[in-house]
């Protein structure tokens, strides 16, 4: 029983990480048709910016309020980089989907290399509050606090995203744009402003994943974003591109499946099951679980 609770909660922690990365990817793809390989870079930027801020930014630190400031700084940096990428690199190639993918591929290679050039290839210890190293007893299972922190963060982000999509004008534009971008412009709306916005949101969520992932894993390294990205892609496809809720469901399914199978089966088998799940979903429902509709 304890093991099941522990596996469920660590699985959900993993799911939270996937969701934070996948929700932005999904919105960016759903709205702007950009398959963003550079999304892992936003995660890396968030992680390194948090790490840097904790050591160098006045007012920031690795504990208490200072830690919050450091994470905020990281999220802001990730968001800023995402906006710059959209404005400078993606926008000029508007509606040329393949070229956009190619640019993000180039960016993912160059960006990770740049992180590596600046801070080295080796993992660096991540500043984290003392309480995040502890465990909390949940139904008899000793669950790492860092995992719980991820779950809480993902739930908050999910709620905020849904509220934003549901009740704001830009949320309305994004939901409509995911369905039919052309028709949004035909109503007199400059949909490209919404593109920048989803990049900013996606970048912020990914950067948060980077910062909290750093707390969870205890280290930060340049390649961290890349390996997460593949599973985030799988989550996006399973959940249905453009659907935030779909991403959430798919993240939970993938996280739990991976954790349980890896524990009860051979290590690595869970990862394989996830790919199997993807193949099954794609063959049965090529549009993903939620289809290309941004539900709010």
């Amino acid at each position: 029983m304890n093991t099941v609770v522990l596996l469920t909660l660590t699985g959900l922690g993993l799911a939270a990480l996937y969701f934070l990365v996948a929700s932005g990817l999904s919105l960016v793809f759903g709205l702007a048709d950009v398959l963003n390989f550079a999304h892992g870079l936003f995660l890396g930027v968030g992680a390194y910016a948090t790490w840097w801020a904790a050591g160098n930014l006045p007012g920031a630190g690795s504990d208490g309020l200072g830690f919050v400031v450091a994470v905020l700084f990281g999220v802001l940096a990730g968001s800023l980089v995402a906006v710059l990428v959209e404005l400078v690199l993606i926008r000029p190639l508007y509606s040329r989907t393949i070229e956009q993918v190619l640019v993000t591929v180039g960016l993912s290679l160059a960006g990770v290399a740049l992180l590596q050039a600046t801070w080295g290839a080796d993992p660096r210890p991540f500043p984290r509050p003392d309480w995040s190293r502890d465990v909390t007893s949940v139904l008899g299972a000793q669950v790492p606090n860092a995992g719980l922190l991820l779950i809480v963060a993902a739930v908050v982000v999910l709620g905020a995203l849904l509220a934003f999509l549901r009740w704001t004008r830009y949320g309305l534009i994004i939901r409509a744009g995911v369905e039919n971008r052309e028709m949004v412009t035909a109503l007199g709306i400059d949909v490209r402003k919404a593109f920048t916005l989803v990049f900013a949101i996606g970048g912020a969520a990914a950067a948060l994943a980077g910062a909290l992932g750093g707390v969870y894993f205890g280290t930060v390294s340049p390649g961290q974003g890349g390996s997460l990205l593949i599973f985030a892609f799988i989550v996006v496809v399973i959940g249905g591109m453009g659907s935030v809720v779909g991403s959430a469901y798919a993240a939970v399914a993938v996280g739990l499946l991976q954790q349980f199978v890896n524990y009860y089966g051979t290590s690595g088998l869970g990862d394989l099951c996830v790919v199997g799940l993807l193949a099954v979903v794609l063959l049965l429902r090529p549009q993903g679980l939620a289809g290309k509709v941004a539900h709010a």
């Binding site: 409509a176 039919n180 109503l187």
Partner: peptide, 26 residues
Amino acid sequence: THRLVRGGLGYVPEDRCVFAGLTVAE
């Protein structure tokens, strides 16, 4: 397109193209 439409060119496309997932009010 969005500039043209704001300039007073209304367009009702073939096949309606209403946003199926949104409510009528939305």
